[in-house]
Design a protein around this nucleic acid. Structure first.
Length: 581
RNA sequence: CGGAGUGUAGCUCAGUUUGGUAGAGCACUGUCUUCGGGAGGCAGGGGUCGGAGGUUCAAAUCCUCUCACUCCGACCA
């Protein structure tokens, strides 16, 4: 390709609304342009990268034996009613009506459609297991799209769905997909972790997320420094402290704490460490079936002052409303007689769920359930009783690993893949039946496996960039080699050599971007553009070099260039460019 | 959805407080000079100041409504 015939859309200035480096560089390098919030046009240069990523994903999926299909983006509401998700999904599901007033949605995922396809096409155990996938546009009306294509509303996803006669077969394909994902992310050169994950709304049991490690990641991932334990923060178990709770040594006392609201304020006011305080959060409980009135039951969640509530864990507990909903100040005031800043477990007449670490404290500080007062020297059992002790908190760096080996570390990650064992959630709801070897009908087990293809491009830039721009690995770079002629208008041989190299490199299967912009484009501009867009190899042909029959080579990541004899240049490049076709 | 903020040329932004002919840099077009790290001169093109309504002799500027976008939070497969 020649720049003179291409749409290079580089900009010198960074667009003001991009905050993460991948978003900034994708705009500056001219890979994407925003159409509306969370919706992006892919320019020619960006699309080349996206296609290369797509091809790697497709190759590995095909290698695993999965079969590619393509399903519509628009889906009829009937299928979503069948699965029960039409009413569950909320506003993320973009709904609309056609001219006949029939309900449709834009597909945020394709469990319903694939299950419908499967039940119409597959009837025998002989056809199982089967794994069908597509690489296709998804639409989710995210509340807050951000970070460019990292969290977009419209994006490209590889989604695969497998069907099985039994759990053992599902596990086998799940393991195969796990290995396939490792292959894909290894080929992309990612530093990544597979972590145990919450299966969330999509349903099912076992689930792993694949995270690219990056400081800009939206998720916190947790892993042991001494074992293979790795989990999403939502799922990471916080163990009870190994040591037993100390015995009470102090008497319960009430102290006035005027205008002292936060835990930090309380600890500072009483000159005690935050770890000696409790915080009590009031959330909505579950209404019992025999509840006579409309009053909303409340539940107290008690944590050590320095710990953070894990809302996913809390919402899963018996008696707690899911999704987790904090009680309003008015609800707390009317039920407990004080405001949120002064609540404590002593004398509380609602269920009290206590975190394992909080339950190990003695002589602690907590709210007195009276505005402006706290209690000191409070103790479990003697002064108040937990209804239940639960795992309620986010783990923190240095906690013991749940598998007993090592200490936990916390890093940020970008979720680029997620695999689930769905079980029979969809096959049962949508009445899918296949005949087994005895001629009896069975409900098939399902798995599903997603990869955010567009997100991968952003994640790659997050991991591979410097102050000058992007540093693409060879196998997803839009072009392998930037070929830059200098002073071609003064020395005709420069242009001739470039044309010759261009042809020979192309013949060797190397993708070349020849910067043949005219003399108005200064060398500095050409160098800066090629570095910004991240072409991994650069050849400079100049009158100076040709005096010695040499051309200059520099890898994007190297600091210093080297001179290559002209006659050997193509052969040397063939060795330097990995994964060229 | 709650809180905060921003909409002026393709991009980055001034101008709004105190109403009075719509600006700069970059980018773009033509031309001359320059030519190994984002060159310089000259000449140009480009904006109904997000939109609607109002106040006023006069509105980018003041008032009302509205739309869009961004950030923080909540939420999320």
């Amino acid at each position: 390709m020649r720049t003179s015939q291409y749409l290079l859309a580089t900009t010198r200035e960074t667009p003001a609304d991009a905050v993460v480096v991948s978003h900034q560089l994708m705009l500056k390098a001219g890979l994407i342009r925003k159409l509306a919030a969370g919706m992006y046009t892919w320019l020619p240069l960006g699309l080349r990268v996206l296609h290369k990523v797509t091809n790697i994903v497709r190759e590995e999926m095909d290698k695993s034996g999965a079969l590619e299909v393509s399903m519509p983006v628009v889906q009829p509401a009937e299928l979503w009613h069948e699965s029960g998700r039409w009413d569950v999904m909320g506003d993320e599901l973009q709904r609309f009506k056609d001219r006949h007033d029939r309900d449709f949605c834009l597909g945020p995922t394709h469990e319903e459609v694939i299950t419908d396809l499967f039940r119409n096409e597959v009837t025998s155990y002989r056809q199982l297991p089967i794994n069908l996938y597509q690489i296709q546009t998804k639409f989710r009306d995210e509340r807050r799209p951000r970070f460019g294509v990292m969290r977009a509303r419209e994006f490209t996803m590889k989604d695969a769905y497998s069907f099985h006669m039994d759990k053992a077969s599902l596990q086998k394909t799940y393991d195969l997909m796990y290995a396939t994902y490792q292959n894909i992310f290894n080929r992309l050169g990612f530093e990544f972790r597979a972590v145990v994950a919450d299966s969330g709304n999509i349903g099912g049991s076992a689930s792993h997320e694949f995270h690219v490690l990056a400081d800009s990641g939206e998720d916190q991932i947790v892993f042991s420094d001494a074992s293979s334990y790795a989990a999403n923060m939502e799922m990471a178990t916080a163990l009870a402290p190994a040591e037993a709770a100390p015995a009470p040594t102090k008497a319960l006392a009430e102290v006035a704490t005027p205008d002292v609201k936060t835990i930090e304020d309380v600890a500072a006011f009483l000159k005690l460490p935050v770890t000696q305080t409790l915080k009590t959060l009031i959330v909505l409980g579950e209404k019992t079936d025999d509840a006579k009135d409309d009053s909303q039951p409340l539940v107290a969640l008690v944590l050590r002052g320095d710990h953070q509530l894990n809302e996913i864990k809390a919402a899963k507990l018996a008696g707690v409303h899911s999704p987790l909903t904090f009680a309003s100040d008015a609800q707390i005031q009317s039920t407990l007689g004080c405001l949120p800043g002064s609540i404590g477990p002593v004398g509380l007449e609602i269920p009290v769920l206590v975190d394992r670490a909080a339950a190990q404290l003695a002589d602690f500080v907590c709210g007195a359930n009276k505005d402006g007062f706290h209690l000191t020297g409070a103790n479990w059992t003697r002064d108040c009783k937990p209804t239940r002790v639960e795992d309620l908190r986010n783990v923190v760096e240095g906690d013991a690993s749940p598998d007993g080996n090592g200490r936990l570390q916390i890093r940020r990650g970008i979720e680029v893949g997620h695999i689930f064992q769905l079980g029979t959630k969809y096959s049962k709801a949508m009445n899918v039946l296949v005949l087994d070897e005895n001629g009896r009908t069975q409900t098939p087990e399902m798995g599903c496996y997603g990869i955010g293809v567009t997100r991968i491009v952003a994640a790659c830039i997050e991991q591979c960039h410097d102050e000058k721009g992007i540093l693409w690995p060879d196998n997803i770079a839009p072009f392998h080699v930037a070929l830059i002629p200098l002073n071609a208008h003064k020395t005709p041989r420069v242009a001739e050599v470039c044309e010759q190299l261009y042809k020979e490199l192309a013949a060797a299967g190397i993708e070349v971007l020849l910067d043949d912009r005219d003399k108005k484009t200064s060398p500095g501009v050409k160098f800066a553009d090629m570095e910004l867009i991240g072409i991994p190899h650069r050849l400079v042909v100049s009158d100076r070099g040709l005096e010695n029959d040499t051309v200059e080579y520099k890898a994007r990541k190297d600091a210093e260039p080297q001179m290559l004899p002209l006659a050997q240049a193509v052969e040397r490049l063939r060795g330097l460019v990995k994964n060229a076709r």
